[in-house]
Amino acid sequence: MNWILLRTGRALLTLLLLIGFSFFVLSISGDPALSHLSADVDASAIDAFRRKWGLDLPLWQQFFIYVRGLFHGDFGMSYATGRPALEQIMAGMPVTVSLMLPTIFAAIGLGLPLGAFAAMRRGSTADRLTITLSVLALAVPNFLLGLMLMYVFSVHLGWIEPSGIVDWRSYLMPVATMALPMAAIFARFTRSAMLEILSHPMLDTARAGGLQPGRIKRAHVLPNIAVPLVTITALEFGHLFTAAVVAESVFGWPGTGRLLIDSVASRDFAVVQAILLLTGTTMILANLLADIAYGAIDPRVRDQRRRRVKA
């Protein structure tokens, strides 16, 4: 129980620091009034804007009011639309999630078997090809990858409309853009985790005991690579949103990722903060799930926890 409380406390503090940091950095580097009003606006309109959104108060006071609102479930209003920030984010969320879910499945579905395959044929042409391709997929920025796909499939072949959600095919390019570099990470990670397990002495014990290779893979190798894979999956969850930001911008998808870019540029604080809170919470939950998964997989972790809980 203590463990859960401690974690929750730490998570809340992390979130507070996250929004605090972004709030102050964004505040001192840009003025929402000047971002939302044109250069030709009368000075009195700027004053009116500041008054309307409480930007005439000292910074710390603005932040305090914002945080107080949070505790009442009020995520603030978007300066751009005058609508609640949360409502605006939730409008984009289904789009973003609809990109993220297939991406993570595609990344794991592609990367894991590829990495395992490469590890089992270490040094072969297939292995080297996998490594080379994964370096390539990692080296090409998402942004460029997206444009390359678009050039080939939309401009050159004319198969898929380049932007927005037209039909199911619209998912192919953005998901590929997001998933390919991630699949590369999964492949590399799976490969090295596999190699480590494959050279572990326990496999000698198993082989010397006459167990068949398939049996060994199922009984020893797969459970043991699950631990590092859970770690990398939790980590990649964070990259998932970053990837969505790029994909949504390139492919013109009306999701939360693109909203973040617009909101940062225009210093639409409430929206930025709410997105950070949401992604931060997602990350924290992903890590929590990973921790629970560790416990489920690894008895050493379970024991360690049990001892801590007893204390």
Binding site: L147, M150, Y151, S154, V155, G158, E161, P162, S163, G164, V166, S249, V250, F251, G252, P254, R258, I261
Partner: peptide, 18 residues
């Protein structure tokens, strides 16, 4: 009027007929 922030994507959409 659809928002497509990236110019390259707008150009691609024009060329592809979207």
């Amino acid at each position: 009027f659809s928002v497509v922030p990236e110019l390259s994507t707008r150009v691609a959409g024009l060329v592809s007929g979207q």
